[in-house]
Each structure stands twice: as C-alpha cells, then as structure tokens.
Amino acid sequence: MRAVTTPEVIALKGRTLGPTAWFPVLQDRVDAFARAVEDWHWAHDDVERASRGPFGGTIAHAHLTLGLVPHLFASLVGFAEGEDAMFYGYNKVRFPTAVPVGSSLRMSATIVEVVDLGGGEELTVDLLMEVDGVERPACAAQAVFRHYAVKAPD
C-alpha cells in the first residue's frame, strides 16, 4: 500500500479498494473484546453452551466485527506524511451473518463520495466484510471518514 496525497484522495471517488488479507477471529480476541465492553453473552464466550446453540460454536460480537474496520481500512489506504483520516461515523450498518470464532474476515471498500470541505475532505465509503467460505457478508456498512492535512503531535 502506498500513501496517498490530498489530490489522490479526491481521485479515489468511485474506486473499490481491496479486499484485504484474511484476518483470523480467534476466541482470545473475542474474550478480550467481551472484557473491554462487559458483554458476556454465552454465544460469544461459553464454548460448551455455544456448541449446542444455533451457530454450532462461539461467534464474534457484531461490534467486534465493526471494530476491526479501522485496522482493515488502514491496510487498504494510507495517507501521506502530514495527512491523516479520522473516523466520523456510520450512515448504515447491517450484520447479515454471524462470524464464527476460528473463521477469518476480509474487507473491501468502495469510495462512493468525496466532498471537499475546504481544509479537508469527507469520504463516504461502502464497506463489505466477508467470512471465508460463507456466501453472505458478515457486515455491510457505510462509513464516513474525514481526511485532513494534520501532523500528529510528537
């Protein structure tokens, strides 16, 4: 991945980036997420009980799947020195299928809109997260990022 400059960010409109490399979703990550957000539902953390449940095993939290967006998006596009993008929000999020623990995810991103804000750009991005070997996506979302010329503090 090559770092893009402001004119190249503007030119991303209409482009599809990715997919990313496959990212494994393991039980230790699901448990760490549960600890961080205090969400201890049996479908996520009780391996024995979940094995008898509707998914045949534990599944990742939907918000864990969504929480991987910044990491996966950063593997698709980087920004030039002195520039960065900040997450601004989501317009729509859906989770059509569960992410079984032990499976892998990957993401593709389509830049549907780039708006010049005068001092930065707003990118509207359609995201699609796939589970390896599963037809339906794990997550379909529309995210909004703001790109600025900004230097991180030392």
Rank of each mutant, 00 (worst) to 15 (best):
residue 38 E to T: 13
residue 95 F to E: 05
residue 120 G to A: 09
residue 43 A to T: 11
residue 74 A to R: 09
residue 47 V to M: 06
residue 65 T to P: 10
residue 107 M to C: 06
residue 42 W to G: 11
residue 27 Q to I: 03
residue 8 E to L: 03
residue 9 V to I: 11
residue 143 A to V: 07
residue 124 T to E: 10
residue 92 K to H: 12
residue 22 W to F: 11
residue 61 H to G: 12
residue 134 V to E: 00
residue 89 G to Q: 12
residue 23 F to P: 05
residue 23 F to N: 09
residue 120 G to I: 05
residue 30 V to H: 10
residue 117 L to V: 09
residue 76 L to M: 03
residue 37 V to R: 07
residue 21 A to Q: 15
residue 34 A to G: 10
residue 73 F to R: 06
residue 146 R to I: 15
residue 32 A to C: 08
residue 48 E to Q: 15
residue 128 L to C: 07
residue 12 L to S: 06
residue 56 G to P: 07
residue 138 A to N: 02
residue 51 S to K: 14
residue 8 E to V: 05
residue 144 V to T: 13
residue 60 A to W: 11
residue 119 G to R: 01
residue 134 V to A: 01
residue 96 P to F: 10
residue 69 V to G: 01
residue 78 G to H: 00
residue 37 V to A: 10
residue 95 F to R: 06
residue 32 A to P: 08
residue 40 W to H: 15
residue 27 Q to W: 03
residue 110 T to N: 03
residue 91 N to K: 14
residue 9 V to H: 03
residue 28 D to V: 04
residue 3 A to L: 10
residue 148 Y to M: 14
residue 138 A to H: 04
residue 22 W to E: 04
residue 73 F to Y: 10
residue 113 E to N: 13
residue 71 H to N: 07
residue 40 W to A: 05
residue 124 T to P: 04
residue 17 L to I: 06
residue 82 G to N: 05
residue 71 H to K: 09
residue 45 D to H: 13
residue 119 G to N: 05
residue 31 D to W: 01
